[in-house]
Simulated assay, not measured.
Amino acid sequence: MTPLPSSAPCWDLFCAVVDNFGDIGVCWRLARQLAVEHGIAVRLWVDDLAAARRLAPEIDPTRDVQHLDGVEIRRWTAPLPEIEPGAVVIGAFACALPDAFVEAMARRAPRPVWINLEYLSAEDWVSGCHGLPSPHPRLPLRQHFFFPGFDGASGGLLREADYAARRAGFEAERFWSTLDLALPTSDELRVSLFAYESPALGELLEGWQRGPAPVTCLVPEGRVLPGVAAHFGLRDLRPGDRLQRGALTIQVLPFVAQQHYDALLWACDLNFVRGEDSFVRAQWAERPFVWQIYVQQDDAHLEKLDAFLARFCVGLDGGTAQALGSFWRAWNRGRGVAAAWPAFRDALPALAHHAQTWSATIRGAGDLAGNLVQFCKDAIE
Rank of each mutant, 00 (worst) to 15 (best):
T2P: 14
P5Q: 06
P5F: 03
S6Y: 09
A8E: 11
P9N: 10
W11I: 15
F14Y: 13
V17W: 12
G22V: 04
C27S: 14
C27F: 02
L30Q: 02
R32S: 05
Q33L: 06
G39Q: 10
D48C: 07
L55Y: 05
A56Y: 01
I59F: 04
T62D: 13
D64A: 15
Q66P: 10
H67S: 12
I73M: 07
I73E: 01
R75Q: 11
A78S: 15
A78T: 14
P79H: 12
P79A: 12
P79S: 13
E84L: 10
P85Q: 07
P85V: 06
A87T: 06
V88N: 05
V88C: 14
I90P: 06
A94I: 02
C95P: 04
L97D: 02
L97N: 06
V102D: 08
A104R: 15
A106D: 11
A109I: 05
P112R: 01
I115Y: 02
L117T: 09
E118M: 02
Y119N: 11
E123F: 08
D124A: 15
G131R: 05
P135A: 14
P135T: 09
L139V: 13
L141I: 08
A153W: 01
A153F: 01
S154N: 08
L158Q: 08
L158I: 15
A161C: 12
G169W: 04
A172K: 11
W176K: 09
L179D: 04
L179W: 08
L179I: 06
L181C: 15
P184G: 13
S186D: 15
E188R: 10
R190E: 02
L193S: 02
F194Q: 06
A195H: 12
Y196A: 07
A200Q: 01
G202F: 04
Q209H: 12
P212E: 13
V219E: 00
R223L: 12
V224Q: 01
L225H: 07
H231E: 08
D236Q: 15
L237P: 02
R242L: 00
L243Y: 01
I250P: 00
I250D: 00
P254V: 04
Q259M: 05
Q259Y: 04
L264R: 00
L265M: 04
L265D: 00
D269A: 11
L270H: 01
N271G: 02
F279A: 01
E286M: 13
R287T: 10
V290G: 08
V290R: 03
Q292V: 08
Y294L: 12
Q296H: 15
Q297S: 13
D298E: 15
L302Q: 10
D306L: 07
R311N: 06
V314W: 03
G315S: 10
D317P: 05
D317S: 03
T320C: 12
A321H: 01
S326C: 11
S326R: 15
R333Y: 02
A338W: 05
A338I: 09
A339T: 09
A340S: 11
A340T: 06
A340V: 05
L348K: 11
L348Q: 10
L348A: 09
L351G: 10
W358V: 01
A365G: 08
L368D: 01
V373D: 05
Q374P: 03
D378G: 06
D378A: 13
E381F: 11
